[in-house]
């Protein structure tokens, strides 16, 4: 086999390989939307984040507008400190409410942003004033049982 046929075959191989890599970056993954370097970071504090994970989506009206950048615990207040990276093309008002929601009954947890009416927009490093913690299924069930238990003796009298 002569040299030029090797060159052609190897060149074709590399081209197909690069095409496959591009497919993985653009079609399987989302290179444009997932660049962790772009956008701005805002802070939200929650009493309880439930099962929220780093990289969970941040959604507004069901549209992914960012990612959870990091999760930590404030050592003094014992609140969960969640940093959200929001894509640069979305802006939210100062009085936006962040809540931790679940997609479906057993689905993954994400952060929902609900914009308010304040004309001033959130800037990088700002902290959200109002948050709503995750619903913890066990807590809900026990609350339900306690309230039932509290009702029952009253009915019996």
């Amino acid at each position: 086999m002569n040299r030029s046929r090797f060159d052609f075959a190897v060149g074709l191989f590399v081209a197909i390989g690069l095409l496959a890599m591009a497919f993985m970056a653009l079609k399987v993954g989302n290179l444009a939307g997932f660049d962790s370097g772009t956008g701005y970071v805002i802070e939200a504090r929650f009493d309880n984040i439930g099962g929220l994970k780093v990289r969970a989506p941040v959604k507004s009206a069901g549209v992914v507008v960012g990612r959870v950048e990091s999760i930590g615990l404030d050592a003094e207040t014992y609140e969960a400190r969640v940093l959200l990276r929001v894509y640069p093309n979305y802006r939210f008002s100062k009085d936006t409410i962040a809540s931790i929601l679940t997609s479906g009954l057993l689905g993954e947890q994400y952060v929902g942003l609900e914009s308010g009416g304040d004309p001033v927009y959130l800037a990088a490093g700002d902290r959200l004033g109002k948050t709503q913690s995750a619903m913890i299924l066990e807590k809900l069930i026990s609350q339900f049982l306690f309230s039932k238990a509290a009702e029952t003796p009253a009915k019996a009298q």
Binding site: M24, V28, G29, N30, F34, V64
Partner: peptide, 19 residues
């Protein structure tokens, strides 16, 4: 099919680490 995939496959963490 595609949007769920794109929303959950991270280029840096998943694709680059795989390579």
């Amino acid at each position: 099919f595609w949007s769920q995939m794109q929303a959950n496959v991270d280029v840096r963490i998943d694709v680059l680490n795989g390579l």
